[in-house]
Structure formats: structure tokens, C-alpha cells
Amino acid sequence: MRHLLSTKALTRDEAIGLLDIAEDMAAVQEREVKKLPTLRGKTVVNLFFEDSTRTRISFEAAAKRLSADVINFSAKGSSVSKGESLKDTAQTLQAMGADGVVIRHPASGAPHLLATSGWIDAGVVNAGDGTHEHPTQALLDAFTMRRRIHGAAARGKGLDGIRVVIVGDILHSRVARSNVWLLETLGAETTLVAPPTLVPVDTAGWPAQISHDLDASLAEHPDVVMMLRIQAERMHGAFFPDSREYSRLWGLDDGRFAQLPATTMVMHPGPMNRGLEIAAAAADSPQSTVREQVANGVSVRMAALYLLLSGGLD
């Protein structure tokens, strides 16, 4: 695997192969010495044009546990904020000998540009681009689902027949897009629940059902309910009237949570708006996978960096 830019481009074998390597990485995390020598002498640059402490430290931990040297390059406080182009930044990293670049960028397609422009030879991991994709988030979500369902027997398995409901701002969500493609590839059935204003105008080609009725979707007792972070600023764009109405219609509140079977997983990519899209009772319940998602994120990102920088799964 040369780059990891999207889940749409992943085959089932590639996706399951990556999740299986993540299982190996997770096993290492349970050892007293959590570090592997695999990427010793390699340099990984975390190139973040958007603030995201959670994603950055997850990638940083993943790279360090593989013994790579890590350089954090934040657009804030760098020459980028003085108007340096992506091209010049890329060529600077190339001159410094970066082997891998983990890029988070507000513009959709920026990682694709970096990977295909010829400006840099490094492997590129998309750590979230605009409203396009966030592939490692979807992979860690799939990893989390697979572990909860199959436990120690997860290796080699997909998510066939698993029913997943994703709730929230689908229109602006790179997490939702990456999940939709990956869940389809792994055999799951996806329903997207959102107000009509927060769904793209044409989703006919998406392998997902679209619903505007959260109660009806939850009444079908899905295996997974994934709540997306809602940005309260969206109300200024007339996407919904106010946060109270959003919460009442599309929030996982105490009443809705109580209706769910005890086997339904409650997921959230974080950071959560407690009391807005998710109630505390749901977030803190044993059904919640929020903390597992964070831990699994490191394992999945170790697997991704391992595959890109040591040339596996070609």
C-alpha cells in the first residue's frame, strides 16, 4: 500500500488485512514494553492544517510505538500561516527526508493532491480532508465493531450483516463518508439519519439508506448506533432552527437510549457534545465504545503506518 487516502479505494482484502495487522498491534499494546522497532530510522511528519489534538496525538503515539521519528508540523505558527503554498511545504518536507506524511487539511482532496503531485515521495495518510474522507477513523470504527462482535476470533472477518445507524451532519462529515464506503466493503448495512438539510442532495449512489426519522431507525434495533458531532454553528446556515430542536429530533437522549437493546453499541468519533447529540447516560454506558475507539485508533494507525512505510500488503 503506497498511500491511504480514502476508504472508497480499499478492497475487502486490503481492509481486512489492515484490521488484522491492527489486531497484532493491539496485542503489542497489552505488553509491558509497547514499542516495536519496525520503523526505526523512518521519519513521519504530522502535517496539520487544522487543529485536531486528538487525531494528532493518536498518530504521534502510533508512529512512536513503531520507533519512527515524529515531526509535528502545525500550520498555525508556521510559514503556512504566512501564505506558503502546499507545494512549498511539501517540497520542504521532501528536502528534510520525510518517509511518511500524515495530513489533516480543511480542503477536500488536499491529501490526494499531495500524493499525486510529484512534489514529495513520501507515503501519504489522509487524517481528514475537508468534508471528503477520514479513512483511519472509519477503520478504527470498523475495528471496534469487529472486536466487540467477534472478540478474540475477529481476525479475517468482515462485518457481514451488521446493521449500522449513523446519525447527524452527514453533509459535512468526512467520518460518515469514510464509514459508508468501508461498511459496504465489509458487508454491513448502513442507514444514515439526519435532517434533510444535512444530507447531500443526491445520495442515490451511496450504499446506504437515508432516513429522517431517528425513532423509526432505532426501533429496528440496529447493532450499532454511531452519533456524529453536530456543530452548533450550523444553525446559522439555516440547517436547523436551534440546538434544542436538533437534540429533540436527532439526539440520542435518555429516552431513546433506554429503548435500545443492551447489545447495541453506541459509538461516537469524539469530541462529544454531551446533552446535544448524545446524553451522558448513553455516552457513559457499558454499550458506549467511545474510549475503546480512542485506544483502537492507535492500533489502527500503527497498522496503516506499518503498511505504508514497510511496504506490506502490495
Binding site: G109, T131, H132, R177, P200, V201, D202, T203
Partner: peptide
Amino acid sequence: EGALSGELGLAG
């Protein structure tokens, strides 16, 4: 704005 803009994450 259409199916492709939704997939690519580009404003329509």
C-alpha cells in the same frame, strides 16, 4: 452540485 460533489466532499 450532485452525486459527485457529495462523494468528493466539495461544496455544490
